[in-house]
Design a protein around this nucleic acid. Sequence first.
DNA 1: CGCATTTGACCAGCGC
DNA 2: GCGCTGGTCAAATGCG
Length: 159
Amino acid sequence: MTKSEVDHLEDGYRWRKYGQKAVKNSPFPRSYYRCTNTKCTVKKRVERSSQDSSIVITTYEGQHCHHTVGFPRGGLINHEAFTSQLTPLPSQFFHPSGVQYPHELVPMSSPAAPESHTMPGETGPEPIRLPETSQPDATQQPTDEGLLGDIVPPGMRSR
DNA sequence: CGCATTTGACCAGCGC
DNA sequence: GCGCTGGTCAAATGCG
């Protein structure tokens, strides 16, 4: 979950919107995104909290098989450093400790449901959790709550 | 010209 | 069996 005013969260990947539907739980439509990388079948659902319109709930499905591309498609990983560490995505979806706003904001299922992030059959029996070494925390600043904290998914921060 | 977004239609699964 | 909801596809359109 991320607190942001915009839907298109720049999390380092390139997303292509392929659908949008209005859901009953929320008066706001839910958007469906897919990673533009052909080798990457990661999907993402973005819906807005019905309680607080400034909060978007991003649900990732799958894991990226490429590094966070700072460049658009076409120029795949050129740095050997990237190819040496495929599947860098921590994939710690909606980590309870990653939430940075008050509670009781989630109307649906309990917000503290750490079990729901374990994709059954998607990632296999082994939980995919990379150490924070994959992300050089050079951008991690104590003041990232203001701007960076809004666009950086909890998985990339893990704290 | 190429790519991303938009939007309606279509399909599958589930509940009643 | 029918209706509803959620998810995906594909054509059209706009923008860079």
